[in-house]
């Protein structure tokens, strides 16, 4: 493995670069020949089924796991002496009996800041994440949404160049989720590079500048969502057929003949069709198929559809 620093100016400045990474736990290989570049001011969304190697990739990026092969450049090189990469874990990794501000100060101190720097970094991080008003509240007494934001604020105290968020919106309500999404977009504006590991395709669709799909330790698709989707779906629309009851065997055969496959549940099927101007005719045909249809939704395919197309099971 080679570790060094490299600065190139492509579309945006690369913050971290992994080349041909192979990582393993003992004799069990997890990542194979993985290459990835993360750029400043971009949000990269990483998706993949459980066990695909997402957590392992994150551990390589934050320097917790040394790859057995490959090269690391930029912020992720020489992690032990740098605060360039920070992880926001899925769990609320905070001290519950400390206030939001004290948590930020504590983590700033732990990454080597002196007291004056720590105070300044803490206030800046709380402002960036919209937590200034709750700075003095003990974390244990905060709502789920605010805890998630403080969880992010704490990672910002070292002024990282790369911020990794593991499932940042899991387990919170829609309003809190919207606030987290706003916070992430605001952070992007500061020029920081953001990597989001998620199973939430709504998040992925709304946040991703680029997305990557990790299957069996390999990044099988990487690119801007529009490019990835058009390469697979071209002009096709996603037709979602919501059933009112579980389909019988005959009904399942009918749905398959229409090119549909089960989507998020056994009662929601989807198919991708280039309908052109044939929308009404297609809907009539579906209605005539004597299926227990409750609702038909037609939309542009999203990253969730692409994930399923690539063979991923619906994680939710």
């Amino acid at each position: 493995m080679t570790i060094g620093t490299k600065r190139t100016a492509e579309e945006a400045e690369p913050v971290a670069e992994l080349r041909n990474i192979r990582a393993a736990y003992g004799k069990n290989p997890v990542l194979s020949d993985l290459s990835l570049t993360l750029r400043s001011g971009e949000i990269f969304v990483l998706m993949g089924p459980n066990g695909a190697g997402k957590t392992t990739l994150v551990r390589v990026l934050i320097g917790r796991l040394k790859p057995v092969k490959g090269s690391i450049f930029g912020a992720c090189a020489n992690q032990s002496s740098s605060s360039a990469v920070r992880l926001v874990p899925q769990d609320i990794a905070l001290f519950p009996l400390l206030s939001a501000r004290e948590n930020c100060i504590a983590f700033a101190k732990m990454v080597g800041a002196d007291w004056r720097q720590a105070l300044s970094l803490a206030d800046h991080a709380l402002e960036l994440t919209g937590c200034k008003d709750i700075a003095s509240t003990l974390v244990g007494g905060l709502s789920g949404g605010f805890r998630r934001r403080v969880n992010i604020a704490v990672a910002l105290v070292g002024n990282p160049r790369l911020l990794i968020l593991d499932e940042p919106t899991v387990g919170i309500d829609a309003e809190a989720k919207s606030l987290i999404t706003q916070t992430i977009n605001a952070l992007k504006e500061t020029g920081i590079s953001i990597l989001i590991v998620t199973h939430d395709f709504d998040d992925a669709d709304s946040l991703a500048d680029r997305a990557g799909f990790l299957f069996d330790g390999r990044l099988i698709r990487v690119g801007a969502p529009r490019d990835l989707l058009s390469a697979v779906f071209e002009n096709k629309k996603c037709i979602e057929i919501v059933l009112s009851s579980l389909p019988e065997q005959v009904e399942q055969q009918q749905l398959r003949l229409l090119g549909a496959t089960p989507s998020r549940s056994a009662m929601i099927w989807e198919t991708f069709q280039d309908l052109g101007d044939k929308h009404p005719a297609y809907i009539l045909m579906l209605n005539d198929a004597s299926l227990p249809i409750k609702e038909i939704k037609i939309s542009d395919p999203g990253l969730g559809a692409l994930y399923r197309h690539l063979g991923g099971n619906n994680p939710t």
Partner: peptide, 8 residues
Amino acid sequence: NGVAERLA
């Protein structure tokens, strides 16, 4: 809770 991982 992940604090240890966070602190590497």
